[in-house]
């Protein structure tokens, strides 16, 4: 058995003259939760759709569960589960009818179907709602039902394309707990998201921008490797003005707004603190606090994306 559930080599997709995915390489270990991050239109969905056999690749190869996506798409399809942000359920059918339909599509029958239906209803917390029309369910429920339908046939590999779009924060947290549980049961999960806080749940992540892979590793690796300089979190009386005056200073490598606070990347912690206080008071802005923080993934990605954009132009 191979150590990797998914192996991708130079995978490329062109739509006419536009290159949506440009020679992407990565491997996903068995049982990992693998995060696939990037802005909308960066090429995440295109990559996932190629791996699921929904889209033919222009060049490059990939194997999913040991099967080649170009030459054995049927075998790939038997071994994967796929769920997209659209929660592809039939709104005009009941919960049970949806489960029966997807079960039937994967050839589940009799006892097996009954067992799996029971499992999905329990997992999605839909016991007692079997005959509700799916359109009457809230977003969180639909999301869990869609997940349940995607893994009815107990696939070893699960693809989730923006699975938490349009659901409330509590449902999002519950959903990630579910994903964690699946991963401990040995299922490999490849998930795309643009919520960077969600990336912290992943064992491993890659960042894609304009079709190209720009970084990869575990979340802590990425934080350590890419941002060695200190990040200072600044609370002030006016965050917008503070941003305007600090970002133009030569000592501020990187400045961005996080909620009501400012994150400033500097060369040296003590010098930076002094410079920030001076600059703010010179502009009539009151400094409430400055402290060094551990960089979040968001800091890392904004930093990487800025570097990438600067390099490109």
């Amino acid at each position: 058995m191979n150590e990797y559930a998914i192996e991708v080599h130079d995978l490329t997709k062109k739509f006419g003259a536009f290159t949506a995915v440009d020679r992407v390489n990565f491997n996903v270990k068995r049982g990992d939760i693998f995060g696939f991050l990037g802005a909308n239109g960066a090429g995440k969905s295109t990559t996932i759709r190629m791996l699921c056999g929904l889209l033919q690749s222009t060049s490059g190869t990939a194997s999913v569960g040991g099967y080649d996506i170009n030459t054995q798409p049927e075998l790939v399809k038997f071994n994967i589960g796929y769920m997209s942000q659209r929660f592809s359920l039939y709104d005009d059918l009941t919960v049970e009818q949806n489960i029966r339909f997807y079960g039937g599509v994967y050839g589940l029958r009799n006892n097996r179907l009954r067992d799996r239906m029971d499992w999905v209803l329990k997992m999605a917390d839909l016991k007692g709602r079997e005959s509700s029309l799916t359109r009457t369910l809230s977003g969180g429920w639909k999301q869990r039902l869609a997940l349940g339908c995607a893994i009815l046939h107990e696939p070893k590999i699960l693809f989730l394309d923006e699975p938490t779009g349009g659901v409330d924060p509590i449902s999002r947290r519950n959903f990630w707990e579910l994903i964690n549980r699946l991963s401990t049961e040995g299922i490999t999960v490849l998930v795309t998201t643009h919520f960077l806080d969600e990336a912290e749940y992943c064992n491993s992540i890659i960042l894609i921008n304009a079709g190209k892979l720009i970084a990869g590793g575990t979340p802590s690796q990425l934080k350590r490797e890419h941002i060695k300089d200190p990040i200072l979190e600044v609370a002030s009386s006016n965050v917008v003005e503070a941003l305007e005056v600090i970002r133009v200073q030569p000592w501020a490598i990187e400045t961005s707004v996080f909620g009501t606070k400012l994150h400033v990347l500097v060369k040296d912690e003590e010098e930076g603190k002094v410079s920030i206080r001076q600059t703010l008071s010179a502009n009539g802005i009151q400094t409430q606090s400055i402290q060094r923080i551990v960089p979040s993934l968001e800091d890392v990605f904004l930093y990487l994306l800025d570097k990438e954009t600067a390099r490109a132009s």
Partner: peptide, 14 residues
């Protein structure tokens, strides 16, 4: 439109 076709297409159905 609803995305269910895509869901069917990732299944082994031809």
């Amino acid at each position: 439109e609803r995305g269910t076709m895509e869901q069917i297409m990732v299944s082994p159905l031809r």
